[in-house]
Write a protein that binds this DNA or RNA. Sequence first.
DNA 1: TCCGTATAATGAATCGTATTCATTTTAAGT
DNA 2: ACTTAAAATGAATACGATTCATTATACGGA
Lengths: 224, 224
Amino acid sequence: MAATTRNTSRERLEAKESAILDAAEQIFCKAGFDGAKISDISRAASVAEGTVYLYYHNKQDLLTAVVARFWTQLTLGAEAAIDPEASPAEQLEQLAGYHLQALLDQFEIVSLTYRERPQQEQSLDQVRDYVRIFDRVMQRGIDRNALPKGMIIRQLRDVFFGTLEFSARTLKLRNQPYDHSIVTNLLTLIIERSGSHTALSGDKEPTNRELMYALEAIQDKLLK
Amino acid sequence: MAATTRNTSRERLEAKESAILDAAEQIFCKAGFDGAKISDISRAASVAEGTVYLYYHNKQDLLTAVVARFWTQLTLGAEAAIDPEASPAEQLEQLAGYHLQALLDQFEIVSLTYRERPQQEQSLDQVRDYVRIFDRVMQRGIDRNALPKGMIIRQLRDVFFGTLEFSARTLKLRNQPYDHSIVTNLLTLIIERSGSHTALSGDKEPTNRELMYALEAIQDKLLK
DNA sequence: TCCGTATAATGAATCGTATTCATTTTAAGT
DNA sequence: ACTTAAAATGAATACGATTCATTATACGGA
């Protein structure tokens, strides 16, 4: 049966491709990009050196594939970690906790992400998909709680991921374990901010009117 | 005269070393680490290839030197950008603005910083010195305004630099220019959170922004 | 079951570039 | 001017990514 045959053949190819990817991930993480030799990777994957090039154009391509797969899996994990019933704040905390833990657990492969695509070129699609999870959670929060302008999400995204990544780097540097206070403190910053005020959204001095709004916000809170 | 002679000789060496560094910086930034050939760098510096190795152990070492010099200069520039008379909040804003601008202007060389020292090894001394500027400014703010615990500075440092770096990356990706609202919004997050601060203990009349901060601090307190 | 062919795999040969090192050049001290 | 140590040179070497001529595999048809 042609279909079955073709399918079996494809499966064999995919198994080999995935063996190469697994080997590459392992060696890249152990030795870094420059330290990883194609000969090491091919040996770990039980194929000849040349075979690697039947599946990936070159070493850089192989790294890209490893990194892409990582972020795809991370996206799945993050979606699983977020309780759809939870409040926006809780979801954000779940995402932050998951992300920080992942950064710590897989620090090497995250670092390799930056080796990928030397510079200005657009970032990996898989990374963009991952980041969209944050956007969705925030958007849901905004829809529910009428948070301020849309532009703010973009900026908060950088606060969120930038802080978590630098925090993870710091923890690694000091050989410290996961610290949940990082997550809660970050959440406090983001949520307090997005909640109360329109304020300070621009590069200008706050106007008297904005100050008035701030006072009214306090008034509102006190009345509750 | 032996002293003069020796001095002149050293000067010659230092001039050559700095020519090599300049050339390396230029080529690394243009071509990236992997794309930069020692032969390109030596040609740009008007020396033979072998000469580079009289000054730097290897290519990686050369990158380290380039990056180290960059952060040293950045530290000097940041210190110059901060007005010692200004309020802590203003100083923080000056530092953030300076940092964001530098990240945008010298994006490539900042990226190269991460090529340096593959992973867990301790980060560049020069980077640590740079980061201490933030610590000093914050500490001064705390001393003046009795901000909360000390541990918070460490975490805020990651918020500060992480956010700015990710924001810069985002701007670069979208080909957008410097955006001061990133700085002001970040400052709002950090200052509100770090605490009570009447902040008005400065030498000058409070600005509207400082009044805003004070109001929001009151708001935070009332909410607890 | 066996053959012919297309597909996949192999690993030795090639190529490019970082690094070394035997040789040459420079310049300080006499 | 001469000697000698310090600097500089660039051709030779080493190493690892990539290629490619050759070999092995497996599928479809007889």
